[in-house]
Design a binder for these strands. Structure first.
Lengths: 222, 222
DNA sequence: CCCGGCGTTAAGGCTCGCGTAAGGTCCGAG
DNA sequence: CTCGGACCTTACGCGAGCCTTAACGCCGGG
């Protein structure tokens, strides 16, 4: 991963300006003008995502929520209104910063650099929770019983649970992340995948606990 | 490390306000009024440092530089002037965020939580009242007897009481927040849940006191 | 064309939480 | 002190939420 930055911004003049500034600062900006286009992109392809809240198509907040269920990528919100309630909502949803227009491009760059500087990128692509090790890149999972191979859906589920390790994750979030969201009935499907996952985890299955009425949680067995 | 936060702020009224807000949000603020006092402290003792730039004694920027050479602690700058040059300078020096006065205390809290969320693990959405710790994200409650698992309704009740910790909360408010409001007869239902909660809280049950004729209150066991 | 892998659906059984009832206890007013 | 209402606790049945097994349909490769 290089210095690629995703900019979601519908204002043409402003977008161009930001792109120029970012390029000049050594980043590699990737600019999309509309929320629906941004929807299909993989957040993990970018170092930072700069997101305008007021967008045609998908509303910015939805995008943020969507990215957050899939990834840990830093998201920086760009907004026309200097609305405190909005700010709080955005930051609560996991945004890393919030900049209101108008702003000086240099400020935006400085804030992006502040995001990137954070020490989280150390243990990249590999998550260890208890006896379970998940290599997101190699798509490989090791437990105390040895390496085991998961199906794509199973891997997505385990991956999301691992990224949120320790926290209770909603059934909806899991369904949204791992299953084809087209047919959203039959939430029993998730049960089956969880069941199979537990079966494969064998002696470490206890780490995948169900949170009644909410969803599931992957915890360190400790 | 707990939720200790260092606040460096010379304005007495504002400082007190921030301290109150932070406490209420479950943090443990530690307030010093002057830069020279802050100079001797070990930044690693804190989860986040909130730093006013305009200080008597050591100038705020110097403090920031000093902290940065010693530690990776997130620093959030508080400043009276909305000066872009200052912002950029602060962020370049390694500050994680920059808030200009006047601001709403809730915004500050949200930004602090965004900072804290980074290094993974705890810190978000956690309320501590007496010996009871409530992690809203993990949906987990810890008491002096250890971790205990609550049902959704019990968790909602305890959560609301914790958010309003110290204040009496109406029965109606609790019923409204936690129970399926469809059939609101049988107000005895809430009693049962409270009872069960007390049962699970065991030795900390005393913190959940009855306010006769009103409702309940969750207090620090003092 | 068959076969194995995978996602999905269906169905039965089970656990668990919720609400209600019933009897006891505590509190405050008169 | 007494009475009534507010509150606490225990017990229990129902239904929701969950787990598992089994079987179906959709691909891909052999």
């Amino acid at each position: 991963m290089s210095n690629r930055i995703l900019l979601v911004e519908d204002d043409l003049a402003l977008g161009q300006q930001v792109v120029d500034t970012l390029s000049q600062a050594g980043f590699d900006p990737h600019w999309v003008q509309d929320g629906d286009a941004a929807r299909g992109l993989n957040p993990d392809d970018y170092r930072v995502i700069v997101l305008d809240l007021m967008l045609p198509g998908t509303y910015g907040m939805d995008l943020l929520k969507r990215y957050r269920t899939k990834s840990e990528v830093p998201v920086l919100i760009l907004s026309a209104r200097d609305d405190t309630a909005d700010k709080i909502r955005g930051l609560k949803l996991g945004a890393d910063d919030y900049v209101t227009k108008p702003f000086f491009p240099e400020e935006l760059v400085a804030r992006i650099q502040a995001c990137v500087r954070r020490p989280n990128l150390v243990g990249t692509e590999r998550i260890i929770v208890g006896a379970i090790q998940i290599d997101l890149e190699r798509r490989e999972v090791t437990t105390s019983d040895g390496t085991l191979s998961l199906t794509p859906v199973e891997f997505e589920i385990l991956g999301l649970l691992a990224r949120r390790k320790g926290s209770a994750v909603t059934r909806d979030a899991l369904v949204d992340a791992a299953l084809d969201t087209a047919h959203d009935n039959s939430r029993r499907t998730l049960d089956v995948h969880i069941s199979r996952l537990r079966g494969k985890l064998r002696s470490d299955a206890a780490q995948l606990e169900t949170v009644w009425g909410i969803g599931y949680r992957l915890s360190e067995g400790s």
